[in-house]
Design a protein around this nucleic acid. Structure first.
Lengths: 129, 129
DNA sequence: TTAGGTACTATATAAAATGTAAGTAATGAG
DNA sequence: CTCATTACTTACATTTTATATAGTACCTAA
């Protein structure tokens, strides 16, 4: 997080890839460490900052804030502030945010398959590729 | 890439997340900058190192090697070396690699929608949230 | 006056990912 | 012997991302 250097090769590469490859584009947006987890919690409905924090046990407040900001910038979530004391802020997926559902489901089901595969015992006597 | 520090909080968090969240698990595996692009090229059939390099114009050999190694470790691609000179190495998706297709398609279609949304002109006169 | 809750912000630092530049091995062509 | 070719490897530098720790503002209730 923090600043990105718009003169770096890395940055240029990301732009170029995102430009010609929709999956790279998408991956740039939702590829952060906490992004998808936050979204999958929000799929069940709006949550406030503190609730998200509880659901993501090891996240620091700073990381949560940064992730939420990025998500907001990308119009994936909306942020509603209630002028109360103590403050209350609610986060909710936008339509395009809810549209992530099939992506998340696809990832989950692939992840499940993959995890099983990786836990399988190895073939010992080398039979095939 | 390079070494990961198995004592870091980051590492612990990733493990914990991957453990309870399949989408975080999947995202850890295919979330690299080039991973999905490589896979989407390979969806059309096996390719050799040099061909991949040509298709990914700005990638360095180092990055390509690292990504391919990681993909191989995760059993997403297989690597076949032909004992020729000059050397020839072919990469091909494994079954679980080909199983990424729906994930990639879901990402592409979401990315497409999202991109359109972000390119839309902003609403100027603040009407709604 | 002080403590307490909520949602942050600021600053520093650590770790991970990516990039640059150079070199390696094997062999056949010239 | 030298060069070209291919698929790497290595050492190092830079950029990006994540974490740690400590604040802040606001009002309420004691």
């Amino acid at each position: 997080m923090s600043e990105i250097k718009e003169t770096s090769t890395n940055f240029a590469n990301k732009l170029a890839l995102a430009d010609e490859c929709l999956e790279a584009y998408a991956s740039n947006i939702i590829g952060g460490q906490w992004t998808l987890v936050i979204c999958s919690w929000l799929l069940n409905g709006k949550l406030r900052f503190g609730a998200l924090k509880k659901n993501l046990p090891n996240i620091t407040e700073r990381m949560l804030t940064l992730q939420l900001r990025k998500l907001e910038e990308n119009k994936i979530i909306s942020r509603t502030v209630y002028a109360e004391v103590p403050p209350r802020v609610e986060y909710e997926l936008t339509p395009i945010g809810y549209a992530l559902k099939p992506v998340i489901k696809a990832l989950e089901s692939w992840g499940d398959e993959h995890k099983k595969l990786m836990n399988e015992p190895q073939e010992v006597s080398g039979s095939k590729n």
